[in-house]
């Protein structure tokens, strides 16, 4: 495991070194074969950079995960992160879920009314929210709120040498900064999504009953009728993965940031963009996994 640590410590400067080396080799090739190799050069260089970034992320991830399971554990920090992610994200996630549930009820009613299937509104709302929209929308909102703040905080600590200061005080930055955030992300997102599921379904209920004149008892009955435990569970599994991805991207990009305010700004952008994309990718993969039959 120490091998990871060492290569990570040296990753910044060495990375530049290796990239430069790759570039030189490729431009040498170009010199030999003339301009026709231009396309291959560009593709090859981009591919090498991609492989290197992937490798660095994998090392970071494995190191971070290993530190989640090794003492000392900073319970105070884990609790603080859990409150920050779980409690303070409730308003934004709750509002997102509420309006999504309401819109979903209205839109599906419009659609289903065209072939006299209005009765399916409640079912469509609950399945869409628990299986897809709850986890994905909560994930994206938290990526914007938490991923950005993690990247900015760790990035600023990085460029002001606070991360180095941690090391000199015999405290492992991975254990102190990264592990608590990963644990909090992994555990709090499912909780947030569970709340989002309930609020989203409630939003659909409000529209169904007060705008579309459904019978309240019938609406609730239809909500439960076709809902299976796996619908909710798959959403919560997604949420756990999304929470981990958000915290990982925030920490990774913050940890890699260099060069002052601009570097921290770039880290924040990269954290939000990469975690949003990864959320959408993993959403598809996990959906495929759960519904492969």
């Amino acid at each position: 495991m120490h091998g990871f640590s060492r290569s990570l410590n040296a990753s910044g400067p060495n990375a530049v070194n290796r990239q430069a080396g790759a570039g030189e080799r490729v431009s040498h090739l170009q010199g030999c074969h003339g301009g026709s190799m231009g396309f291959l050069t560009t593709t090859g260089r981009a591919f090498l950079v991609f492989l290197e970034a992937t490798g660095r992320l994998m090392l970071f991830t494995s190191l971070a995960i290993s530190h989640c399971f090794r003492p000392p554990f900073y319970f105070r920090l884990i609790t603080r992160q859990m409150i920050d992610i779980g409690y303070y994200s409730l308003p934004v996630v709750g509002l997102t879920a509420l309006f999504t549930g309401m819109v979903l009820a209205l839109q599906s009613y419009t659609g289903f009314a065209r072939f006299q299937a209005e009765g399916a509104v409640a079912t469509v709302v609950v399945l869409s929210i628990t299986r897809e929209l709850g986890p994905v929308l909560a994930g994206l909102m938290v990526a914007g709120r938490i991923g950005a703040s993690m990247a900015a905080e760790i990035g600023t600590m990085r460029v002001t040498e606070q991360v180095d200061a941690l090391s000199t005080l015999a405290t492992n930055p991975f254990k102190y900064l990264v592990a608590p955030r990963l644990i909090a992300g992994l555990t709090m997102l499912p909780f947030l999504v569970l709340v989002a599921d309930i609020i989203g379904v409630f939003g659909g209920f409000l529209i169904g009953v007060y705008r579309l004149d459904f019978n309240p008892a019938a609406y609730i009955g239809r909500t439960w009728e076709y809902l299976e435990p796996m619908d909710v569970i798959s959403g919560l599994v997604k949420a756990g993965v999304f929470g981990f991805v958000i915290a990982l991207m925030g920490c990774y990009h913050g940890y890699q940031s260099r060069g002052g305010a601009q570097g921290v700004g770039a880290a924040t952008t990269n954290a939000v963009v990469s975690s949003s994309i990864l959320i959408l990718v993993f959403n598809y993969l996990i959906t495929g996994l759960f519904f492969s039959r």
Binding site: H2, T160, E161, Q162, D164, A165, S167, T168, A170
Partner: peptide
Amino acid sequence: RLGTRDRERVMRKFGMLFQGAALFDS
């Protein structure tokens, strides 16, 4: 060539005053 644990042990011998102070602002 120290491992993580030994590195932390050696780190306990050190104190460091950073140029920009590097105080934890939180």
